[in-house]
Computed example of a mutant assay.
Amino acid sequence: MTQHAATEPDVHASTRGESILQIGPVNPTVQSTLASEFGALRLPDDEAERGAFLDRHADGISVAVCSGRFGVDAGLMRRLPRLRAIVNFGVGYDATDVAQAAERGIAVSNTPDVLTDCVADTALALYLDVLRRVSAADRFVRRGDWERTGNFPLAVRASGRKVGILGLGRIGAAIAHRLEAFGCEIHYHSRRPVEGSSYTYAGSADELAAAVDVLVVATAGGPESAGLVDADVLAALGPSGYLINIARGSVVDQDALVSALAQGRVAGAGLDVFADEPRVPAELMDLDNVVLLPHLGSGTDETRQDMAELTLENLRSYLRDGSLVTPIG
């Protein structure tokens, strides 16, 4: 998507008043700035209150500020006839109807790059934890099982593995770079081969899963990637294979994964994301071969501050001249 040109002066004629709408909770720095500097409106969380709110304010709203979890969905976008820009806190924007935004010429921004390293670090932490069974061993010690039953069961080697990266974008490449330091052989699948990459390209997710010991899901979310890791991909990964997901819960067929883990058709999984957050399938809770994180991929003080600053940069830039610092597409 190209940047939206400043052809409609009412879009950014004022930096205050009812032109800016906050959707859902956002980062505290962003939220306080929206209120103090911009006098932004806040969309009610209660569905029953939204209709009356939009009846009063929808025609005056030109910019929406949201997060990856609470975006501008199809129904809300249709209720905002003068919406011209969506400023998203987060790299993911699958909660926003980007197809409708493109059709209407609505500019959309996200916060890439600033969270790449921390998300890649989280993927590496899950990789090491699942293969070396770090969290399971911690629970073993805390329960007193070391003293009662003897040594903890053996894990598997983390170094020197064949690892598949599903989605070799910024984050996928950062994960691959870290795994190279462990002597891993990197394979990948993206919509097309990445120019200049020395890694081994696989033509499909199934082909990638069949070639590796560990499959790391790092592709973007959204309708195009929904269910990409399905039962067939998990079968290709096999009973000695491991799955790491730091992308979006929607990319993996969660029911198929739960079944494969429970029946030993996949060796283990490290999951930072789920299909219906914050709800996590009960069947996963007691599995020692699964590590569960509460979607904290970029959850460090430093990264969240960088994301907040970039979100506000995008907003100020759009209000100033109609451009976005980091437009998607």
Rank of each mutant, 00 (worst) to 15 (best):
V156W: 09
G164T: 04
C184W: 09
G164W: 14
G183M: 08
G169C: 02
R170N: 11
H177G: 01
K162H: 15
P153T: 10
L154C: 07
A176V: 01
L154A: 13
G169H: 12
P153W: 07
L179N: 10
F152T: 03
F152E: 01
A155V: 00
G183N: 03
G172F: 07
V156R: 15
R170C: 01
E185P: 02
A155E: 03
K162S: 10
A181E: 02
I186N: 02
R157H: 13
V156D: 11
K162A: 12
L168W: 06
A181H: 09
R157P: 00
E180S: 11
H177K: 15
I165N: 12
F152W: 01
I171C: 06
G164M: 11
A158H: 15
V163D: 10
H177Q: 14
A181S: 12
E180Q: 15
E185N: 00
R161H: 05
C184Y: 14
H177D: 14
A155R: 14
S159F: 04
L179K: 09
F182A: 03
R161T: 03
F152L: 02
I186A: 06
A158T: 06
G164E: 09
A158K: 15
G167C: 03
R170Q: 05
R170T: 00
L168R: 10
L154N: 08
H177R: 15
R178E: 06
G172S: 04
R161W: 02
